[in-house]
């Protein structure tokens, strides 16, 4: 109940100020612009949105999702309104949920506004609309995760600019680290040693083998933290439980972390 009250206030605040409109308009310009230019939506002649449209979303979200989430707690702390929230009979948890859902709703509206491209692709060809829906779900989950991470950062600081910069950096890492060309470049650090080294005995050869094993493990772990693994399969229309668990855990951990930080700050 109190989550709903917070949700309504936050959503009202997004749409009472130019924030939500600016974000939605810029998102539409970027997503459509990239689809029709670098995405070669028309030229490719492919009745799917996987590469032309959805491919760009994580790149856009990494810049814009923090802009939506940065004020959530930073603003409360700067204005002192956190003291009001903290003395109202409501739990920190319901405030966090209300705020998160409000920011997620802004993105739901933004994504819904891209419907003309779905109409276009249906008019021009015969796409699998199930895959398109799954792409939208993947896209929404990516931006929800980014909003949740931004919320966590915004609980740490009262400065919105600091929050924006740090969150964009974290989201940038999440996008870049699992991105194929980057993953390949990282992998090249872990090129298997030459056959004679593998066969050789002695301390030096052993060291080279350890280095190789270590680096390839680090690269594997780092890549699994990237969004592409999970976004790409949804984008292809694959509903894998592990992807939902991954996005769900990122969101849950961020929200729990927000709650822990807010409580720790008071004591």
């Amino acid at each position: 109940m109190s989550s709903l009250t917070i949700y309504k206030r936050e959503l009202g605040s997004y749409f009472a100020q130019p924030t939500a409109y600016a974000i939605i308009v810029i998102f539409l310009l970027l997503s459509m612009g990239l689809a029709f230019t670098f995405g070669s939506f028309i030229k490719a002649g492919d009745a799917s949105l996987e590469w032309s449209f959805f491919f760009w979303h994580p790149w856009i979200f990494m810049l814009l999702a923090p802009a939506v989430g940065m004020r959530l707690w930073a603003d409360e702390q700067r204005n002192g309104t956190i003291e009001l929230l903290g003395t109202f009979p409501l739990s920190t948890r319901s405030a966090i949920i209300g705020k998160f859902l409000a920011a997620a709703t802004v993105w739901l509206v933004a994504l819904a506004c891209t419907f003309p491209i779905v109409i276009t692709v249906n008019y021009l060809g015969d796409p699998d609309n199930g895959v398109i829906l799954s792409g939208y779900i993947g896209s929404f989950l990516v931006c929800c995760s980014f909003v949740a991470v931004t919320m966590l950062v915004s609980a740490c600081t009262r400065d919105q600019v600091v929050c924006l910069i740090v969150s964009v950096f974290v989201c940038f890492l999440a996008v870049v680290i699992g991105y194929d060309p980057v993953a390949r470049a990282l992998d090249s650090f872990a090129t298997p040693p030459a056959a004679d080294v593998l066969a050789a005995t002695g301390a030096w050869a052993q060291l080279v083998r350890w280095w190789h094993q270590g680096v390839s493990q680090v690269v594997e772990v780092a890549t699994s933290f990237g969004v592409w693994n999970h976004f790409a399969s949804l984008n292809r229309g694959l509903f894998r439980l592990q992807d939902f668990v991954w996005f769900g855990s990122i969101i849950l951990v961020s929200l729990l972390g927000t709650s822990a930080i807010l409580s720790a700050k008071r004591s």
Binding site: R9, G12, S13, A16, Q17, N79, G80, T81, I82, E83, L84, T87
Partner: peptide, 10 residues
Amino acid sequence: PESAPLYRDM
């Protein structure tokens, strides 16, 4: 509270 904090956009 001391500084009379408010949601100024409301």
